[in-house]
């Protein structure tokens, strides 16, 4: 697959104006979020194998999601919070 893409990069990008790229662009979020249907996923996969621009957009979208899910630091819950919550609940009932 990699050599196929390398080959594609060396060619002039195909002047695809048939709307498939637009459809794929609309699917980017649902694909990276695992929300695309099986048919959509199939269409998407076969398109990005042939379209360098859409392949690239897909990579970017995955990178973006990965930056948030993989790099955003989680804040540490204050140790006393659970006890405070339990105490407040007992106070109010």
């Amino acid at each position: 697959m990699e050599s196929k893409f390398t080959e594609m990069y060396q060619k002039e990008p195909a002047e695809e104006k048939d709307g498939a790229c637009e459809q794929v662009a609309d699917m980017l979020d649902s694909v990276v979020d695992g929300e695309a249907s099986a048919d959509e996923q199939k269409f998407f996969n076969s398109h990005i194998e042939e379209c360098v621009n859409c392949f690239e957009s897909h990579q970017k979208q995955k990178l973006l999601k990965g930056l948030v899910s993989g790099h955003l630091k989680r804040v540490i819950v204050p140790a006393s919070l659970v006890q405070t919550i339990k105490a407040k609940i007992q106070e109010t009932i």
């Binding site: 919070l81 405070t84 919550i85 407040k88 609940i89 109010t92 009932i93």
Partner: peptide, 8 residues
């Protein structure tokens, strides 16, 4: 805290 109080 407010959320847990409401949830309770």
């Amino acid at each position: 805290q407010e959320t847990y109080l409401k949830a309770y």
